[in-house]
Design a protein around this nucleic acid. Structure first.
Lengths: 338, 338
DNA sequence: CTGAAAGCGCTTACAG
DNA sequence: CTGAAAGCGCTTACAG
């Protein structure tokens, strides 16, 4: 119960400026219907008293908190390992800060976490939510849309394509670019390591890969497809299996940089060289792409832009606009691995 | 301005239970001075109406927000690269969630960010702060302690050892363990890559390294000391320089896992093998330790525990207790690199 | 143990 | 353009 110095209230400002509390409030809220003289007096008084608004009092009457939650609803290990989350989180924090809105971080790894978060949001403590949850059928997403809480998802929210705003990249097109690049290098036995099939990045990047293979006149071969879960270790395992089943593989498109790092490990361990024997293209252009050896050729996701658009869409939702979708382009970044 | 369904208030609960608002409030706040009958009636009414407290109204009268800020005041790139931050952030979020307290994330990379955060905190929007800022002389830390905001730092807050609560590991002892391990392996030309000298991890790990060298009867040699800034690239550069100046180096203690990964890169590139030619010990036991090749022998920082203690200390501060310090032990984890 | 009442610091119709 | 007043949803002495 540490006592904090009593802060000046709107009352103090009104007294200092010689106006009523109502006038001070009007100045605080945009200054409409205020005479230039009153406005100047109030602004001066605000400066002199060091007044800052009490958000609790304001929220009590406006019924809005002017804060949003960033909800990460993924299995635990992902948050530790995936280098994309910090980037997204930082981008959203920054974009919100520009609107003077704080970000409340909620991490829902367990069932208990999820219940707590839903309770918190149902209680009306926040105005809206930024959702990161790649897997279809996430209960938090269902509950939030059910409650009618304004929310924006990162990536296509499978099952909620039409009742949730979202920002996504063109997954299939990115995968097409990557695979076409490998074909253009003259590679003919091009494998792929996918993400989970209940995520848009798993499903749609595989579709793009197949599409590019067809365009390049290469046969579809299901034994060239292996699945991972975006972790490095899963990429290593998938690649090991691919090489065992098809020793003639000369290229691989991997659906995340982290899995690509694991794949390179597996390739190297098998006595092959990257890119000479097997060319590798990743996806994300995460920090891992630069620390990988060799540095990864990869499909860049514009995370900075993605977070900005998420915040923009959410603010639009809070303003009463209908849920919209934003699809951003990807870009192939050619480095040493392919 | 999306209208949200009107939530039941304390008034609705009181009507349902047949008591006054005051009694409902007493039940909400611990149930002291409430008869068993009234308590039961109110609890039943709360369930029936689906009442949940309005924090804004409560905070307006209690003058406390029951929320805390997690302030990361580091240069931008650190947040992207350092795998320890997400772990710390997650730990703090979880520990706070157990007390039903939300965490507001603040990232202060730029001067503008810092000013915004100080303004926000000075406005009284949060009750306390968890501080992550490794470098001495950080202005945010100065301002916060100046404002008298309850805060807990992660790591020894150089310059505020006595007016700020903090949780730290025994840096010197960890470095001693690491270096003694290398000496115990029979290595005689043991180098070190330090962190920045204005951070406790830079300063005190170097002291521990020197201490262990002395104990092992090895001569102090300043040309075996190189400095980094905790990033992978800086570790690589420092190691490259060390090997150039002292081609006979047979071991190195590196003050962070990320720098150790860079160091391994440099060693490998020079044609040497790890650990055969040069043994490497890192610091942190971050996720990077496991993905490194070979896997890193390293000094484990108990990040989970650190975040729990930070939250515990902060809650104690909010409860009026004086700033305290908690020093946690480290543990040497032996893997393949040394 | 309980109720009536004041008050936390704002915003916003409502008159004028 | 401005002030007086009601009200947002709680907590907390104060009487009883």
């Amino acid at each position: 119960m540490a006592p904090r110095r009593a802060r000046p209230t709107i009352e103090d400002v009104a007294a200092e400026a010689g106006v009523s509390r109502g006038t001070v409030s009007r100045v605080l809220n945009g200054g409409v219907n205020v005479s230039p003289a009153a406005l100047a007096a109030v602004n001066k008084a605000i400066k002199q008293t060091g007044y800052v608004v009490n958000h609790h009092a304001r929220s009590l009457v406006t019924q809005r908190s002017r804060s949003v939650a960033f909800i990460l609803s993924e299995p635990q290990e992902k948050f530790f390992e995936d280098p994309n989350f910090p980037i997204l989180l930082r981008g959203c924090t920054q974009a919100l800060a520009e609107h003077d809105m704080p970000l409340l971080l909620s991490i829902a790894g367990t069932q208990e976490d999820r219940e707590r978060i839903v309770r918190f949001i149902a209680a009306g403590h926040i105005d809206g939510a930024l959702l990161v949850s790649t897997h279809a059928g996430n209960p938090v997403v269902d509950r939030l849309t059910g409650l009618g809480v304004p929310a924006v998802a990162c990536g296509l929210p499978i099952g909620h394509e039409h009742d949730l705003a979202y920002v996504a990249v063109n997954e299939a097109e990115g995968a097409r670019q990557a695979t076409a690049h490998l074909a253009g290098l003259g590679r003919r036995r091009i494998a792929t390591v996918t993400g989970p099939m209940d995520t848009p990045g798993g499903r749609d990047r595989l579709a793009g890969y197949r599409d590019a293979l067809r365009t390049a006149g290469l046969d579809r071969d299901e034994s060239l497809v292996a699945h991972g879960d975006y972790t490095q270790i899963s990429g290593e395992a998938a690649m090991t299996k691919l090489l065992k089943d098809n020793p003639d593989i000369d290229a691989v498109f991997v659906a995340s940089d982290l899995m690509a790092v694991g794949a390179i490990d597996a390739i190297t361990r098998s006595g092959r060289r990257v890119p000479d024997d097997v060319a590798v293209v990743g996806f994300d252009d995460s920090p891992a792409a630069l620390t990988a050896r060799p540095q990864l050729t990869t499909v860049r996701q514009p995370f900075r832009r993605i977070s900005q658009e998420m915040v923009r869409l959410l603010l639009a939702r809070l303003d009463g606009q209908e849920p919209a979708a934003v699809i951003l382009p990807t870009e192939l970044v050619v480095r040493a691995s392919a």
